[in-house]
């Protein structure tokens, strides 16, 4: 009989006290019968995110919910590295804590991986039955422009480069993450481009993206400059 895979879900948090509770409930609701663990990497949130996680640990069990906190805000890329060190699964899923990534899509990531044997399954917002809610025209324009630029110059082979809802085979994530140097927004793009260049098998599943319900969106104007710098950087290094 086929060995049952274990999944480690890594969620970086900063001031997501309410969201993390809701998210964990929804993860358990949608992955009921699977073998999985949730690894929460909290960067010293002052809002009591860690207290909430401790309460969730009592509710769901400390072996299912792991709190791996760091003392201060150290960035997204290193948060995944940190969580990865503590991951015991065969596959690692990364997602955002702000409920823009809905756990109801987790089964489709896992199914897609099983069907295709892919190394990476990435969620895409830009296909049929995927989509975005809560973006104004400017945000859509920026997103489309960024996407066309990247598709024209990088030929990445995936339709959504900056999405951060992904499933990785653990060894693949370990391999790719070590060669990635970008921070913040560009990090996700560099991850998928490098993985694609290394010849890993990447599949896509449609996801919907509902922009932050609670809290404020973290995208600013300087992101565009960062994105363009990242694009040029990837042109020369991958």
């Amino acid at each position: 009989m086929e060995k049952n895979n274990k999944y480690s879900i890594i969620i970086p948090t900063y001031n997501e006290r309410l969201n993390i509770g809701l998210l964990v409930y929804l993860i358990f609701k949608h992955l009921r019968e699977l073998d999985f663990e949730v690894i929460i990497v909290d960067d010293g949130s002052p809002d009591g995110t860690q207290d909430m996680v401790k309460q969730l640990q009592q509710l769901y069990g400390e072996e299912r919910i792991l709190l791996r906190a760091r003392p201060s805000k150290l960035g997204l890329g290193t948060a995944y590295c940190h969580g990865l060190k503590h991951a015991s699964g065969d596959f690692v899923i990364i997602m955002d804590a702000d409920l823009s990534h809905h756990p109801k899509y987790l089964p489709s990531f896992i199914r897609k991986q099983k069907e295709t044997g892919a190394n990476i399954v990435t969620g895409t917002r830009y296909v049929k039955s995927g989509g975005v809610h809560g973006w104004n025209l400017m945000r859509k324009l920026t997103s489309r422009g960024a996407n066309v630029l990247a598709q024209t110059f990088l030929w990445p082979g995936v339709s959504d480069l900056t999405g951060s809802f992904r499933l990785y085979k653990k060894s693949v994530l370990e391999d790719v993450i070590n060669s990635v140097v970008s921070k913040g927004y560009v990090f996700q793009m560099e991850m998928i481009v490098r993985a694609s260049r290394k010849g890993y098998h990447i599949e896509e599943v449609p996801i919907t993206f509902v922009d932050r319900v609670y809290g404020t969106s973290k995208l600013g104007g300087s992101e565009i400059v960062e994105y363009l710098k990242g694009l040029i950087y990837l042109l020369f290094t991958t």
């Binding site: 989509g131 809610h133 025209l137 859509k140 066309v148 919907t208 509902v210």
Partner: peptide, 20 residues
Amino acid sequence: MVGVGLMFFPTCPQEAQLLH
């Protein structure tokens, strides 16, 4: 490409309700 992308930008208002 940007124009076509904008015109057919996939949106999901029903997802927001489901999420709530």
